[in-house]
Amino acid sequence: MQIHINAQDGVPIYLQIVNQIRYQLASARLKPGQELPPIRTLAQSLLINPNTVARAYKELEQAGIVEKRRTVGTYITARRSPLARRERRRILVERIDQLLAEARQMDFDLRDVVRLLNVRHKVLRKSNRKEVGQ
């Protein structure tokens, strides 16, 4: 798991961790059942306070994204709970809002956006197939 902290971008460090883990899970870079590094290890490698990592893990636990298994460690929740699905939907809605705002600013209307979405979907599907075939 790769996390990058920027102490100068104004977003609290614990939230940077939460957001990156959410994003990596949503984009399947993290898989259900996968173990997260122990708090101490992640704190050491990111050079941040262990309490900050603990706070991030706690937030993720409350959102149903990770679960603590007794004393053994912290894992990405195995089965996607409705909460996790709601979470993925939330991230997607956020991105769509951004996309729509930018599109409007650049004078594209909704029809243009939908058409482009379809085009890009086909392009991406094609390139994915190529990658798999190689």
């Binding site: 102490a7 100068q8 971008d9 104004g10 977003v11 609290p12």
Partner: peptide, 8 residues
């Protein structure tokens, strides 16, 4: 509306 860095 945004939070601030410790620097700020």
């Amino acid at each position: 509306e945004s939070t601030l860095t410790l620097d700020e």
